[in-house]
Design a protein around this nucleic acid. Structure first.
Lengths: 340, 340
DNA sequence: TTGAAAGCGGTACCAT
DNA sequence: ATGGTACCGCTTTCAA
């Protein structure tokens, strides 16, 4: 009797038993009424009494108890380590959440700081999610996928640079972006190609593979790749521009359009002609690139939409038997404007 | 074409009872071992047997069952209707999630499409969150707060234009931004002031009060306010610029720096001098404003940091008895550059 | 038409 | 040092 977990001075949270007592019926009846169970017929007067009692007490059902009993949840887990800033990614993320919510899933965002793949998978599995959509910030291993599936996850979907055994993988090979950017610059006759590497944390996920892509395109062609760290900050850009000519690059791929804008402004202020002296290309095809002068060339990325991904989640949840698929998505195309 | 039978749909998820059976001990012992309960001493050999059994079965505890028994959760609910895009807001949001996670809360993002305040509050209460941080997209009423608290929420915190009874309110009066922007333009001698109103959904939360602020500053001074709808899109801006002179405004507050950039470019392309013919001021003090020519004047907003808010959540959770406070935050200051 | 009761998976008190 | 067991709140047979 002494095991009341939490007996505060406040009113205890009303349960369906309280509603039943007040309405003078059993808990079963309360459940039937409030869930509109069609298999059972409850008289209208009883329904009314139950509803009124629930209303009066401010009764709200307990989701955890319900799903414990049901044996499954509608939780979709979205692990996040660092959510990369940037308009493209935010938009995707919002769309995804929105679309999942429309499909009646509960989105749980779970920060997984400093957990390695398997520890993270175990932590996620505690929530018994029906699906996990890993955005690739935390490396999910085949074993991690197994743990999740064992814990009842019907769909494990990864979105990242490579596919993971046992999971549906949406492979977004960011190297492609670098390859396209570099390919374009090579075509235009450039050979010594700078690559802006953001110093902000959480962007390595994208920046490192993009650099690798540039290398892959440039080195076989006999060109040179020069990685150039840059903080997203005016002073850093000015300092970089001051020593720009020492770098001897004749073209630069600037990670994305925002970094490209920062760099272009600094170079222009330092009297370096774009594209004559240095060609500049960004990525992401943001509106701002079209507003710059010269207009910014860029790599447009065809990313999966949040809506699309949400539908995949739902499909896999409904048909968990389906073989894990691997989709290569992420087309990338150069949009040439005036800066190259 | 033999079917792959290894689907977990068949194999039941292992429970602590399974672990107990395999280890040849009771469920209580399993619980003691896996939770390192210090009140009881378990022999080392037993501990090992339990650990091995858990490992072998791939056992992962069930968070819902645990918190059902415990009588409370560590869920912090973040309702989101439309998460406004925009770097300032995304950064805040990420910080908040990150900081809460560090404090060992589980962040649940819950999209509340088309639910009115009270229905939303009920839906949120089902999850029995220990805290709710409403970012002001869904209007929370005093009654809604009551429902949440009755369901066990120790902290209900709202961040929005006005305080809500019963909740800790962080009042961010966006009108202040409009007031500052307009005040600055009035000082510089402008009297007919345009206000760019983004057509994108989800921004009304900010744009409408900002417009109200402009009105409040301009009208007593005998000036005129001209709201100007604008989609975040190059063609829309070009079309607007073409009829700009008909509007007869001599200054414009452009919602934020991104819309300001879009507008400035279109105006400049149409041969309209900035700031001579039309002064332009943005808001948010983004880096891009400093990169524009002329450099963009802006309103810098001192928003609460995610870290700060997370600490408030934690403090209120630990001391739920504390009186609801109302903090006015959101200082706003004009940063004058060259566009005004 | 309604109620009694058996769990879902864990935790922690009380015996042993 | 362990085991037995009574809950947490809810759904869902099975009886009455």
């Amino acid at each position: 009797m002494s095991q009341t977990p939490e007996q505060s001075a406040e009113r205890p949270v009303p349960t369906s038993a309280d509603v039943a007592r007040l309405a003078g019926v059993s808990r079963a009846t309360v459940s039937y009424v409030l869930n509109n169970t069609s298999a059972v017929r409850i008289s209208e007067p009883t329904r009314r009494r139950v509803r009124e009692a629930a209303e009066e007490l401010g009764y709200v059902p307990h989701a955890a108890a319900r799903s414990l009993r049901a044996g499954h949840s509608r939780i979709v887990l979205l692990p996040t380590a660092h959510v990369p800033v940037g308009p493209l990614y935010s938009r995707f993320f919002n769309e995804l959440q929105w679309a999942l919510r429309r499909l009646d899933y509960t989105v749980v965002q779970y920060g997984s700081l400093g957990l390695d793949g398997d520890a993270a998978a175990r932590a996620w599995a505690e929530l018994r999610p029906v699906a996990v959509v890993s955005l690739g910030e935390v490396a999910l291993t085949a074993h991690g996928v197994e743990v999740l599936k064992r814990s009842g996850a019907k769909a494990v979907i990864t979105l990242g640079p490579q596919d993971v055994e046992g999971a549906h993988s949406l492979v977004m090979d960011q190297r492609e972006v670098g390859i396209r950017a570099a390919g374009h610059l090579l075509e235009r006759g450039h050979r010594r190609i700078g690559v802006i590497m953001p110093e902000e944390p959480g962007l390595e996920l994208f920046s490192v593979p993009r650099l690798a892509g540039v290398r892959r395109a440039v080195e076989p062609a006999g060109g040179t790749v020069v990685p150039i760290p840059l903080a997203y900050d005016e002073d850093a850009a000015t300092a970089l521009a001051a020593r720009w000519r020492d770098l001897g690059v004749d073209a630069v791929y600037a990670y994305n359009d925002e970094y490209a804008m920062l760099l272009m402004r600094a170079l222009q202020d330092a009297g370096i002609g774009i594209p004559q002296e240095t060609a500049v290309i960004g990525a992401d095809d943001l509106l701002l690139g079209r507003l710059l002068r010269p207009r910014l060339s860029t790599v447009r990325i065809d990313m999966v939409t949040g809506q699309h991904l949400a539908e995949l989640v739902d499909r896999v949840v409904r048909d968990p038997g389906s073989e894990p698929e691997r989709h290569d998505l992420m087309g990338a195309q150069v949009v040439q404007r005036e800066s190259t």
